[in-house]
Amino acid sequence: MDIRRFPGTRPIAWLFFAYLYVPILILIVLSFNANRTATIWTGFSLDWYRAVLSNNDILSAAENSLIVAGAATLASTLLATLGAVGMARRRFKGQSAVSAVLALPLVVPEIVTAVATLLFFILVGLKLSLVTVIIAHTVFCIPFAYLPIRARIEGLDPSLGEAAADLYANELVAFRRITLPLLWPGILSGAILAFIISLDDFVITYFVAGPGATTLPIYIFGSIRMGISPEVNAISALMLFISILFVSLSHILGRVTNR
């Protein structure tokens, strides 16, 4: 029997979506609220966005977030690409184990990774700073960047590389002329995913951030302890907008180039 015919499927689906998106919707609406008390609507205003964009603490947190996300995305995507190419090149003993280990960070509780990373930094004597945040972000972004790239490689005809070698292209040229151009959509997709994950991360960042390494999520958490302010609503709405933009971009890229 078709599951859509079960009585009550439709209202339950609506309930599900409401549960998921009504709070976000409320947050966006309230970010345009003229009243200082965040929960009472008194009229439309862009004041809080103006306040956010002229608040130096927020701007420096945003800058930190972008630096961390940018650097971590670059490093993790590079490593993930090399890893995916290496995994696809030839079969070796214990390959499925390596595959599982690569994806493991996706299921390890983030708090465990956070504590472990902090311990590790202390152990090797690394002073907490923006650099430690970048290192930590690079590590947990790798599986997110890796998976789309790997999927893309698996969709490629393995004889393409052989065809290039057959036509007198050495390994380096074959990679540059054939493999890399065909992997681009996967790499971009992976990079975008890594960027969003990094931008959004709170738990690990909270543990390994040194003084002056406040990112946006950390700033939001800090300011919320003094009560929910309309500025926080505005920042959150902006971050949501950026995330949606990037996810859509990644989705469109995947669609356009899979034809």
């Binding site: 005809d157 004889s159 393409l160 052989e162 065809a163 290039a164 070698a165 057959d166 036509l167 007198y168 292209a169 050495n170 074959a174 054939i178 151009p181 065909l182």
Partner: peptide
């Protein structure tokens, strides 16, 4: 010798044309 050094060319079963 590596494949790219041999004066031999192949027509693959899947053709393996470069799609880009």
């Amino acid at each position: 010798q590596a494949p790219y050094r041999r004066p031999v060319n192949t027509v693959f079963q899947s053709y393996a044309l470069f799609p880009h």
